[in-house]
């Protein structure tokens, strides 16, 4: 900043900053807070000093200024320290890093192409198609739980769970065989299964391999001798088959008579649909 001309008239140079600061403070006070002066009067003329008014001070070239130099040894020491080395060396990239860097560069270049503007449109198309495929698979009940490795562990079963079909068993032949060999326990079982077949054929029960004997009992009409007789026959069968009761020939004959009586009832009863 150039020194104002009036200040240059001051005889003592070290007074110039003080005068200048005072003038600035007074000016700012008048601008910010003070009311405007009533009328600007021209400043009183400063008496000019004829011998210093227009002649600049001569440059002082005689005073010797001491030049300070940093200690060379210290400077050399600092130069050797890593903390003061501001030059960054380029990192050495491995082949793997170079591969990824180039790959991402390619991707970046691709994303910056004009065709990228259509990118989201293709994403939406893909999502729409995936949702459609998912709905179709769900409708077809295709199990995809194992695709992502989160499916249940499938343990192979070491047994056959095939249902026994009472409608395919030749009861007459097998009963005769069991009775002939004295296997009354098996004969009671076959006789009971034969009765179940007759009940299913007559529409009294809904045959399902997973149903228990008492489930069939509950399906029979609540009133009438059918349920009572079947209950007793079921009780006998359970004692013989599940209870591993050894039967004498007389006991078997008693059981078999009950079976035949119930079969006779079923043969004479009109067919119906189970409740």
């Amino acid at each position: 900043m150039k020194t104002p001309r009036l200040l240059a008239l001051l005889p003592l140079p070290w007074l110039r900053p003080a005068v200048l600061a005072g003038a600035l403070l007074a000016a700012s006070a008048s601008v910010v807070g003070a009311p405007a002066p009533p009328a600007a009067r021209p400043p009183a003329p400063v008496p000019a000093l004829a011998d210093t008014a227009t002649r600049p001070l001569p440059a002082d070239r005689a005073t010797a200024l001491p030049t300070r130099r940093p200690d060379a040894a210290r400077l050399q020491e600092l130069r050797g320290q890593r903390e003061f080395d501001y030059a960054e060396a380029a990192p050495r990239l491995s082949a793997w890093d170079l591969f990824w860097a180039r790959l991402w560069q390619r991707v970046q270049d691709w994303l910056q192409q004009r065709s990228y503007t259509h990118f989201w449109r293709w994403v939406f198309y893909a999502l729409f198609v995936a949702a459609g495929v998912f709905v179709v698979l769900k409708l077809l009940q295709v199990d995809l739980t194992g695709v992502f490795g989160r499916g249940p562990r499938r343990a192979p079963l070491a047994y056959e769970a095939a249902a026994e079909n009472i409608h395919e068993v030749d009861f007459t032949a097998r009963l005769a065989e069991a009775e002939a060999t004295g296997n009354f326990r098996l004969a009671v079982r076959l006789g009971y299964l034969q009765l179940l077949k007759q009940l299913a054929d007559g529409g009294f029960i809904d045959w399902q391999p997973n149903k228990t004997n008492h489930a069939y009992l509950a399906e029979l009409p609540a009133q009438g001798p059918l349920r009572t007789d079947f209950r007793e026959i079921t009780r006998q069968f359970e004692y013989v088959w599940y209870g591993e009761l050894g039967l004498t020939a007389g006991q078997y004959a008693h059981v078999r008579t009950g079976h035949r009586a119930l079969a006779g009832q079923l043969a004479g009863a009109p067919a119906r649909r189970p409740a």
């Binding site: 008492h214 009992l217 509950a218 209950r231 007793e232 009780r235 004692y239 009761l245 006991q251 008693h254």
Partner: peptide, 20 residues
């Protein structure tokens, strides 16, 4: 005896034959 309808049917009949 049982408590549901089918199981309630398992009450032994009074004329239970000997052996059963």
């Amino acid at each position: 005896v049982g408590n549901d309808t089918p199981a309630a049917e398992s009450a032994p009949a009074p004329e239970a034959a000997a052996g059963f």
